[in-house]
Design a protein around this nucleic acid. Structure first.
Length: 482
RNA sequence: GGCGCUAUCGUCUAGGGGUUAGGACGUCAGAUUCUCAAUCUGAAAACCCGGGUUCGAUUCCCGGUAGCGCUACCA
């Protein structure tokens, strides 16, 4: 039948945040599921706050997430004539009227309203005698165009997510369609564009629910068919407040910078408000697009849980093949200013990454906890020193071990392990004591992959050097390094 | 304040007139003993409150409460 057409319409007044990203995602999923068209539109009619570079950033984030669009990006700023035309048509048909009240007038009236009484545009210009209106217009008095909202009846719609929503028309004020500078407001812009772009389903945040009746009025006044509306519950911060800068990372780019994979973020966001019929948690974009159902979207707001995102990221990280993971790790190291000085070959790099992969949660972990695998410039973490370098005899053992390892002809995990265990037996100490101490010496961390795998990856020369360096460090810093 | 919307473990959610109210993250405990940010096993943890309908409500209805949204010449 008729083609399904949806759109994502961000305004370039900020970066793409996770809420917007989920809205984009749900639009994308719905379009794919229905074999429809996904349109991208930039709502840049707020000339003061819109910035072109933010448009670029939003587009980049969309691409990074893998949310490709079929049409656009369209810019509202390119379509100003269209909005003006629509506004004057509405004026001609009596659905709108010029309003000469200045922002200052309005502000004054508003502040005069006492004690919490609701303010609604008082209709000064709505009821203006026609001659006066013509006179002012002829005199070129600056004005906005307001919509003439019916004073009785109600306006409602059947929301795909929320069900029936109705509002008394008396509750709706005569909102502005066209600003005095000729720029359209949101209400005029969306409706004109959604009509012209033949959008069949408007999928957007629940913060637009209250706006919807106004827009429906405009659709009707324009003689256009209504799209289907589907509002999405909001994403909140841990304090249940709407996500904002106060909550730290809220933009898609910030998560990319934290080493989150796009597929993990997408999967996580999708599950904030929707569950597939089978209840799967790990569900790639492809699988989602075959099961997604707007009608199954939750009605209640969701708190964004970074912990679960991190877990999900670890799941995707583990599943990555080397041909994808290696470049990502390389990029991360570069970003963190780490020159991979200790790895001289590609197979070696892969071996290292493979070893680290199962225990990393984000790409950042490779350059942080995993730092010592890529460069000699690492430090001993205080908690690791405190935990595993307590024993004053450690320094001696580390140097002893260095000596023994240095003499080995073969440096397999079996042989290095036998060497270390031999040393501990001779000295009557527990193997774990030296293993853990050695781990700190080799990686600077208390947490790392199996020690003998670490040795193997580092190689004999570097292992010995690091043991000596640690022994020296311990002697110089005294018996109690902690 | 007005209007609108929402309400199941700490969080994301499944479910739905009779269920041991299910799963996931997190938390806790145990296993592993070479660390854990790995792995395995297990545990604790929820139907906002009050009425009504009903043989029976967490589920349906009403009210309350709470939260969120809108209340701009922002979107």
């Amino acid at each position: 039948m008729s083609e399904i057409r949806v759109r994502f319409a961000p305004s370039p007044t900020g970066y793409l945040h996770v809420g917007g990203a989920r809205t984009a995602l749900y639009n994308w999923l719905f379009a794919r599921r229905m074999n429809g068209v996904f349109i991208l539109r930039i709502e840049d009619t707020d000339a003061d706050r819109s910035k072109p570079e933010l448009t670029t950033a939003i587009l980049e984030s969309m691409e990074w997430l893998g949310l490709n669009w079929d049409e656009g990006p369209f810019h509202q700023s390119d379509r100003l004539d269209r909005y003006r035309t629509l506004a004057s048509e509405l004026e001609r048909s009596g659905h709108a009227y010029p309003c000469f009240c200045t922002p200052e007038d309005l502000q004054a009236k508003r502040s005069r309203v006492t004690g919490g009484r609701p303010w609604k545009y008082d209709g000064t210009c709505r009821n203006m005698p026609d001659e006066e209106r013509q006179m002012r217009l002829a005199a070129g008095v600056p004005h906005v165009v307001r919509f003439r909202v019916p004073e009785s009846g109600e306006t409602g719609f059947e929301d795909m997510v929320f069900g029936l929503i109705t509002v008394e028309n008396q509750e709706i004020e005569d909102f502005v369609l066209l600003r005095s500078d000729g720029q359209p407001t949101y209400h005029l812009g969306v409706v004109a564009d959604d009509m012209d772009m033949r959008v069949t389903h408007v999928v957007r945040g629940a913060d637009h629910i209250s706006n919807t009746p106004k827009q429906i009025l405009v659709y009707r006044a324009s003689g256009a068919n209504l799209p289907v509306f589907a509002h999405l519950p909001l994403i909140l911060g841990p304090d249940r407040q709407r996500l904002s800068k106060r909550h730290g990372a809220t933009s898609v780019g910030a998560y990319r910078d934290q080493g989150i994979l796009p597929e993990a973020l997408v999967n996580f966001l999708a599950l904030l408000g929707w569950t597939p019929p089978g209840g799967e948690e790990i569900l790639p974009l492809e699988a989602m697009s075959q099961q997604f159902d707007l009608a199954a979207v939750s009605k209640s707001n969701a708190v964004f849980d970074p912990e679960k995102l991190a877990w999900m990221n670890s799941q995707y990280l583990r599943a990555l093949t080397m041909d994808r993971l290696v470049p990502l790790v390389e990029a991360e190291l570069k970003l963190s200013g780490i020159e991979s000085t200790i790895i001289d070959s590609h197979p070696k790099f892969e071996e290292t990454v493979t070893m680290l992969q199962p225990r990393m949660r984000t790409l950042k972990d490779f350059s942080q906890g995993g730092r010592a695998f890529f460069t000699d410039a690492f430090e001993y973490a205080p908690d690791a020193r405190k935990k595993f370098w307590k024993d004053p005899a450690i320094a001696g053992f580390l140097q002893d071990l260095a000596g023994r390892l240095e003499k080995l002809d073969s440096f397999t995990t079996e042989i290095t392990e036998a060497t270390l265990r031999g040393l501990t037996e001779e000295n009557g100490i527990k193997a774990g004591l030296l293993i853990n101490a050695t781990r700190v010496a080799l990686t600077g961390q208390s947490v790392a992959p199996g020690l003998f795998d670490v040795m193997k990856v580092l190689g004999q020369k570097r292992t010995v050097e690091r043991l000596q360096r640690a022994g020296k460090y311990l002697r110089e810093s005294g018996a109690n390094p902690a």
